[in-house]
Nucleic acid binder design. Sequence first.
DNA 1: TCATTTATCTGACTATAGTCAGATACTCCT
DNA 2: AGGAGTATCTGACTATAGTCAGATAAATGA
Lengths: 293, 293
Amino acid sequence: MIEADPAVTVRRFNRSYTQRIGALEDSFLGLGLPLGATRLLFEIGVQPATVQTLRVRLGLDSGYASRLLRRLAEDGLVEVTADPADRRRRVASLTAIGRQRWIELEARSDAKARALLEPLTEHQRSRLAACLTEADLLVRAATVTFEEVDPASPAAREATGMYFAELRHRFDFDDAGLDRRDAQALRPPGGVFVVAVSDGEAVACGGVQTIGAGVGEIKRMWVRETWRGAGLGGRLLRHLEDCARHLGSLVVRLDTNEALTEAIGLYERAGYRPIGRYNDNPHATHFFEKPLA
Amino acid sequence: MIEADPAVTVRRFNRSYTQRIGALEDSFLGLGLPLGATRLLFEIGVQPATVQTLRVRLGLDSGYASRLLRRLAEDGLVEVTADPADRRRRVASLTAIGRQRWIELEARSDAKARALLEPLTEHQRSRLAACLTEADLLVRAATVTFEEVDPASPAAREATGMYFAELRHRFDFDDAGLDRRDAQALRPPGGVFVVAVSDGEAVACGGVQTIGAGVGEIKRMWVRETWRGAGLGGRLLRHLEDCARHLGSLVVRLDTNEALTEAIGLYERAGYRPIGRYNDNPHATHFFEKPLA
DNA sequence: TCATTTATCTGACTATAGTCAGATACTCCT
DNA sequence: AGGAGTATCTGACTATAGTCAGATAAATGA
């Protein structure tokens, strides 16, 4: 039962699983609506959103989306109103009847999942849940995309906001003025800021700045708590090192606080060696350096 | 990160996974054939089969399947010939060009799977493979269907054939005449024979016969080796006990050989208690009984 | 202010997916 | 041999999915 090639395992799983779980998708039917309309209804139910957001999320053509929405509106399931902030945009939300249908849909989907689990013992169910949770985390981690953004952009501010919040929580940290001071350094030509995005959500971030001839510094590296243990930190670190290389660095440094033990472990595993203090950062207690091969 | 409800985990996984892996299905496209035709081409490539088999496997309407096949034949990708054994049936197989396309399809699908794994470390890949393998086994086990068949039917003979082969392998067993002798007892009205089927393949079997007033006996219980550890034996046993109840049994007995340690463990966990020899089966060394509540 | 860009909608399409009622050719059973 | 049943095919449909080129209205920037 030991499979040498993970790719083969992935393919076998996909084939077997989708065949069996295809039935789960059937729960989208039986409401008297075609699949496309039902997917849209479901998506609106999760969270009212602008037409554009829905289109991107479901990968729909603009004309097609418009028609589906009109159909749902005609059936009295959704309401489409202009967004007061930008009257070009239109926001779709469920009506009372639509909400009711959505709840039906949820119940149906839930019932299907329960029916799948029903023949299993308690122990097997929790094994399955554990396997799927771990697989999900790994697959999510594998499909994260790294995006180079301006440190002042909303995505970057969202990520650094969470980063600073965590630092405040873990040790005596004060970020007064940091944002403005660093933002300049973490953008081209001397630096970059990278946000890791999954499902449109920032799940990790990090930046590089040049602090001397051939010397780069990694700053603000952070991984969302729910995403730790998936190797995302290591990947991000390698990515940032590549960025530093492109910026002309031959060696890369970083500082951190003794409270951030996982981070210190990560740096050590990645080949960083402790060095003496190289800056006057009051929050830093540990300093590392790594030559870029 | 601990999820109380496995059904929620299953649903979240499905949503997240299919969204990311949907791209895998895209590999079916880009050959210049529509999805349906490509699925059919792929299935024929796995193993040439009769039109009917293909139809069942892919869940196609007969007219639709016929048309898709004709299109593939017109494109020179498949050959459809009458089955010499039954000239109503037609067998589809790939032509040289079709085989070439199929290999392309495989390569494409493989590349997608590898691209998914590419960002992961070696360790993470094997973790993912292990999770998916276990999840797959559990889901397969959960979706096995129990079918009551005649013990002389091809499906039953296939299963008992494998059962006897295993007995011969594990201890000094001789099945001379057993097939005919038992076949009579394992069919209605006094008995039943059940085959567990997954993907059209027999993966477990077992029978019940009546050996006295209110006394049933479980016979020929077997689970395919690759399917052990998924709780299928326990489910089958419970199913057979239900069958015995329906046949009017108040108590159910069974015998087994000391070499079959997993089976003995299963019976003990299921509430079977050792009793003295109740028959003259020369291969039996252990005898069990359980009252049916 | 006016040209540009953006968000959405409309109309006019095409192809795919899928269904259903027969028709046809073959097999099996008595 | 002949009737019942089976496997497949054909013709005639419908609806869904999806595409594309504009049209329209609101926002944006020089």
